[in-house]
Design a protein around this nucleic acid. Structure first.
Lengths: 112, 112
DNA sequence: CCGTATAGGTAGAATGTCTAGGAGAATCCG
DNA sequence: CGGATTCTCCTAGACATTCTACCTATACGG
C-alpha cells in the first residue's frame, strides 16, 4: 500500500533524500539510513531493501561515486559522494520537491 | 520513472488529494481532475488512467460513495461524496502528510 | 558462546501511476 | 450539415519504486 498511512517515507523522495544526505559529506549506505532516521527524528526510515537498490541506481545514473574504505568502526564500507551531475540532479529535485509539496499544500489549505 | 523530476504528482498523495477535493462537495471524476489542476495552479495534474482506478479503489474501501446524476453541462456523470469513514481517512492522511513532509523538510534544511 | 550492531547484498511481491487506448454524447464553428 | 472539440466514463499493460524477507560476514559485550 502506497497509501499515505503506513509508508516509511514519501514515495518518490528517496533519491532526493539520499542525494541530500550524501551532499553533506561522504557516507556509506548504512550511515545514510541512520542519518535519515536521525535528522527526521525517527519519522522517516529507509529499509535496507530499498536503500541498496537505490544506491546502485543512483550510481549507475552517474549521480553518485563510490569507493571502498574503512568505516569508523573499522569495517569495510562503501563510501558514496556526489558527482557533478549528482549535484545538479539534487538541485533539480529540491526544486521539484518545493513545487510539488507547495501544490499539495495549496489543495490542503482550501477552506472547508 | 517515479523520480521526482517528471511526475505529475507526488506519488502516494493521490488518495489524499482526491479525498480532500471530494470533501469540498460532491463532484464527478472529471471535475476532480480539473479542480486539482486549478487549485494547484497547473502544477499537479491527474491522468485519467490514474484517476478512475483510484476512484474505484477508494469507493471499494468505503471512503467514497458514488451515485449517478446530471452534470452542469447536462451529461450523465458519477458524483462522489465522502462517507463517514472517508472523512476519518482524510483526517488521518492529512496528518500523515504533515508528518512526512515536515520530516523531508527537516532533511532538506540541513545546512550545507 | 550468543546476541546485537555494523556493513553489504538479492529476490519477489505488492502497489501505484503512467501511457495508450476505447467509447459515447453534447456543443460549437465553419 | 460536417467536423472538431469538450465532457465524461472506462480498461489494459508496462514500468518504477518500495517493501518484506531473506542471505552473508565481522566485531564486540555479556
Amino acid at each position: 500500500m502506497t497509501s499515505l498511512e503506513k509508508a516509511d517515507l514519501l514515495q518518490g523522495t528517496l533519491d532526493l533524500l539520499i542525494l541530500k544526505v550524501v551532499a553533506l559529506g561522504p557516507v556509506h549506505g548504512y550511515g545514510i539510513s541512520q542519518r535519515i532516521r536521525q535528522i527526521s527524528q525517527d519519522v522517516l526510515q529507509v529499509q535496507q531493501g530499498s536503500l541498496y537498490p537505490a544506491l546502485h541506481r543512483l550510481e549507475k545514473r552517474g549521480w553518485l561515486l563510490a569507493d571502498w574504505g574503512e568505516s569508523d568502526s573499522g569495517r569495510e564500507a562503501k563510501f558514496y559522494c556526489l558527482s557533478a551531475r549528482g549535484r545538479k540532479q539534487l538541485a533539480a529535485e529540491e526544486q521539484t520537491w518545493a513545487r510539488l509539496s507547495n501544490a499539495v499544500a495549496l489543495i490542503l489549505q482550501t477552506a472547508e
